[in-house]
Amino acid sequence: MTLLSQIINGIQIGSIYALVALGYSMVYGIVKLINFAHGEIIMVGAYCAWYLIARLNMPAWIAVFFAILLCVILGVTIEIVAYKPLRNSARISLLITAIGISLLLQNLAQLLFKADPRMFANLFPGSKPFLGLQLTNATLVTIAVSVVLMAALSLMVSKTKIGKAMRAVSEDKAIAELMGINVNTTISFTFAIGSALAAIAAVLYCCSYSQIEPTMGSMLGLKAFVAAVLGGIGIIPGAVLGGFLIGVFESLTKGFISSNLADAVVFGILIVVLLIKPTGIFGKNRREKV
């Protein structure tokens, strides 16, 4: 029974990782950048929702809507202000900029909201019996919302015009531009989608873990990134599978070995994946050409 409940816990946190990993993966696929600031967008989404609900007493669904809106605006602004000027410079500069933005957001939040954690009220209280286990409603909502969003996202990428444009830009920016695709809009749109998913992931995360703090995004973001690499970065089903796997591994480690070592195990998985198959589970090997 404990095994089953640990696995369900793992699937729950894994679906949050998967939502965040989708953001990393899409952005990496399109601009070849590890967007370190993505984790901080989660944190901003969480604080926005918390502030609106706990301080301004807004109804939850309006708060969630505004959190998503704020994250989208923030994500797109970061892209335009910090990443766009560097699009043609060395990749290492872009990466350092992303780290800088991430630290900036984290410390601004620390200044605004102070470092001590805040309590976030669960939006989905109660629980339901399932296979002899008591599952909280938060767990069920998290898993359901994630699955629906992931299905919608993969439909959008494969069927709609903007999805086609995203795939084209990630394949070859210059040629996509020649085909009449507005590359800038497409990149901004990718950041917007990623940030919106991050905001939803933030709210779902808070419902189950009930604590928010300025540094919450960095570890969550890093683990989601590991998930994206595990599944194959730039590949949408890969990010989903990677997210679930990392979540399950992590909660099994917490349940049966030691909760202190969970982070080390996640990064250990990353190192093993990079050694055995650097392109990830779904990744294809690409020859390097001169």
């Binding site: 500069s93 350092i96 780290i99 800088g100 630290l103 900036l104 601004l108």
Partner: peptide, 19 residues
């Protein structure tokens, strides 16, 4: 308390204006 904020701003500004 602004030290790390200054550090991170420095990183971003240096990268954008004088990589």
């Amino acid at each position: 308390q602004y030290r790390i904020i200054v550090y991170s701003l420095l990183l971003v500004l240096v990268m954008i204006f004088k990589p």
